[in-house]
Simulated assay, not measured.
Amino acid sequence: MEIEKKVTVGLIVAILVQTGGALVWAGSAAERIRAVETELDDRKMVSERLVRVEAQLEAVSGQLNRIERRMEARDE
């Protein structure tokens, strides 16, 4: 059994098409990864802002409690 060692134009075209498809797929995958990374960065900033807002709300709640205690003591 003998194998021919010829490379046909069809084989070259098939390899080029397959390689092109792989490059397009890799490019779109990289773009999707970049979009996910951007969204994660945005969420991180929102998360940090939420933590600050929660801390401020706790401070305001404490102030309100002190004001209520003073008003109740004043009424008595």
Rank of each mutant, 00 (worst) to 15 (best):
M1C: 11
E4D: 00
K5T: 00
K5Q: 02
K5N: 03
G10Q: 07
G10M: 02
I12R: 06
I12H: 03
V13S: 05
A14F: 12
A14H: 08
I15V: 14
I15D: 12
L16F: 08
V17A: 14
T19H: 09
G20Q: 00
G21H: 00
A22Q: 08
L23N: 09
L23V: 13
L23A: 13
L23I: 15
V24R: 04
W25I: 05
W25H: 05
A26E: 04
G27L: 07
G27P: 01
S28C: 05
A29C: 03
A30V: 09
E31Q: 09
E31I: 11
R32H: 07
I33P: 01
R34L: 05
T38P: 00
D42T: 05
D42N: 10
R43H: 08
K44L: 15
K44Q: 13
S47P: 03
S47Y: 06
S47N: 11
S47H: 04
S47I: 04
E48V: 04
E48P: 02
E48K: 08
R49D: 08
R49G: 03
L50M: 15
L50S: 03
V51T: 05
V51M: 01
R52C: 01
V53E: 08
A55R: 06
Q56S: 07
Q56T: 02
L57R: 10
E58R: 07
S61W: 03
S61M: 02
G62Y: 06
G62W: 00
G62C: 10
Q63C: 03
Q63F: 09
Q63L: 14
L64R: 15
R66Y: 07
I67K: 09
I67L: 15
R69N: 11
R69G: 07
R69H: 09
M71D: 03
M71N: 14
R74N: 06
D75H: 07
D75Q: 08
D75A: 10
E76F: 05
E76H: 11
